[in-house]
Computed example of a mutant assay.
Amino acid sequence: MDLSRFKKAPKNLDFKELVIFENDNYMVINKPPFVPSLDERTADRSISILKLARETYGDVQLCHRLDKETSGALVIAKNPEAYRNLAMQFEHREVQKEYHAVVNGLHDFDSISVFLPIAPLKDGTAVRIDKAKGKMAETIFFTIRKYTRHTLVKCIPITGRMHQIRVHLQCLKAPIVCDPTYGGEMVFLSDIKRKFNLKNDTEELPLMKRVALHAHTIKFRDLDGQVIEATAPYPNDFEVLVNQLEKFAR
């Protein structure tokens, strides 16, 4: 199923409405899905988080990135000293991040660690496990809730490689739903709701039209050492998916 027609950035974004934390040095936003972190070279260049942030706040800098389809907590530095401060924390793996993902299958993850090296494919659009040439990556997984055929999972990345969570979950035979790149299947309401009737001549669409991955929480230190912790609420599409699973697949 081609879902590309649905994978469009929201229109008329008000950047200030995305901010979930702000002080003199940092802001944390709840990044919406389908908006790239940085300006893209090929696709529509009219919108990116960095462009929107600079239009509103001037010369600010993204401290890290999220994949285009991934929603959630993203930190922006307001000055060079703040950027260097957080860059050093990322380098020393002192930033704590928590992602939530809905995955295919039933899984009991109780601090399951995946410690496998990752290498990009030649076209740069995906990654694979490569024990010879890959860079070491580690993710820890916990089950939040199990449903009939799916599991809501908490993901703690220790390193920050491209597509790390997605490929590590694939290794656990728990691919993220709506992630065909790594084997994730779509979720349809007809899969989870009994006596579901679809109108004649109607195509059923999946409940999620993007990779079901959300950057839920981030925790780091400010310039004065004070701990900043910000939690990004689920966006509408992720919340709808979880609510439908809660309602029909418990």
Rank of each mutant, 00 (worst) to 15 (best):
G124L: 08
A137F: 10
S113L: 05
C178W: 08
L121K: 14
V177E: 02
R166E: 13
G134P: 07
R145M: 10
G183H: 13
A174K: 10
Q164T: 12
K173M: 08
I140R: 02
R145C: 04
T148N: 15
F188R: 10
S190M: 00
V167F: 06
L172R: 00
R161G: 14
H163W: 07
H168Y: 12
V167R: 07
I144D: 13
C171S: 15
P175R: 11
C155I: 09
I129T: 04
V177L: 06
I129A: 02
K154E: 09
C171H: 15
R161C: 13
H150Q: 06
T159D: 09
L189T: 00
S190V: 01
G124F: 09
T148V: 06
F109E: 03
I118P: 06
M162F: 15
I165Q: 06
A126G: 04
D179A: 11
I118C: 05
M162D: 09
S111H: 13
I165W: 11
R149L: 05
G184Y: 09
G134T: 02
T151P: 07
I144F: 09
L189D: 00
G183K: 14
M136A: 15
H150F: 12
G160C: 03
F141H: 12
L121S: 06
F141D: 06
T139C: 10
K135F: 14
I140F: 00
D108Q: 06
D123V: 05
Y182D: 04
Q170E: 14
L121A: 02
V114E: 03
I158K: 10
G134E: 04
R166F: 08
P117Q: 06
H150R: 08
G160L: 07
E185I: 02
G134R: 06
I156P: 00
T148I: 03
P180T: 03
I112V: 15
M136Y: 15
V167M: 08
F115E: 14
T181D: 06
V177Y: 01
G124K: 14
C155E: 07
D130A: 04
P120E: 15
K146D: 08
M162V: 10
F188C: 04
F115N: 14
D179V: 12
G134S: 06
L152Y: 06
D179E: 13
A126F: 06
V187N: 10
A126V: 02
S113W: 00
L121V: 12
H168D: 05
L121W: 03
T159K: 07
G183F: 00
M186L: 15
L152T: 01
I165H: 08
S111Q: 12
E138R: 09
K122V: 01
